[in-house]
Design a protein around this nucleic acid. Sequence first.
DNA 1: CTTCACGCCTGTCAGC
DNA 2: TGCTGACAGGCGTGAA
Length: 296
Amino acid sequence: MPELPEVETIRMGFEKYLVGKTIEDVEVRLPKIIQSGNIKNLVGGKIIKIRRFGKVLVLDLDYKLSLVVHIKLTGQFIYQGPDRPKESEISKKYVGNVPNRFTHVIIKLKSQNSKVKSGQTSFLYYNDIRQFGWIRVVPTDEVEKSPFIDKLGPDPIRLSSQVTLTLDNFRQILESKKTAIKVLLMDQKKIGGVGNIYANDALFLAGIDPRRPAGKLLSHEAMKLYWAIIEVLKRGLKYGGATEANYVNILGEPGGYQKHFLVYGKENQPCPNCGGKIIKTRINGRGTYFCPHCQK
DNA sequence: CTTCACGCCTGTCAGC
DNA sequence: TGCTGACAGGCGTGAA
């Protein structure tokens, strides 16, 4: 499911294929996806920069307007254009033809960069099966104080976001909290970008029981967990994200991290460390996987 | 202040 | 075969 590594993979795809292109037209098929602002105001703007804040993507246009997107659980961006790699070179496993019945927004782009012959058109399709995702049009200088982004905690991975989670920062977040550590890791107001998959795997890597009160972690455990979070996010990124249901990058390719899950989704399967059974429980209504032998 | 259930949606899968 | 219900998870909301 889309968490920091998946969204960052999309961001890199946008950087590669969208920067330098001009928005020629926007078609909205499901108006509720556009939560605020007038998307038609983007027409004529040139995409100059792609940013990410936690799980939120921001496309900055040259005339001080930005497209802000949260793809939530089932959002997909699919790019179709003359500068795509040959179809034989990419995996299309999860994406059929676009547009399809889940395509809610279509952005028509005009190429103006040197990679593609000037004037050629390409398309960016936004698909979202469950329609939880949202798109907002916000003036660029107001993006950081716009709803949701304004409350987002620091990001554990540098790359593109502006605030980085430091170890001191992380320790302060845990301090004297009674909340289960896993709940805290997934709280976007505390840390930006970590969701269920990476929270489960980070806690396993750090050898910490997800149910433990955050404030009760010992100093060395907090440090271990801090590095474990960064490590699992980096692994996710290395494999192009995790495809559980329908996450794909902007070419329509699935990620590969699902083949390298440590404990997530592995109920009753052997622990990669001790070989014991991984158990599944629920914390705050979320599926939680851990090895009771290795995680204390 | 925190915690927790629910709503938003639809696809998928287990069980009957 | 077809129906029903549980489940998936991000986040806002409102009640406890």
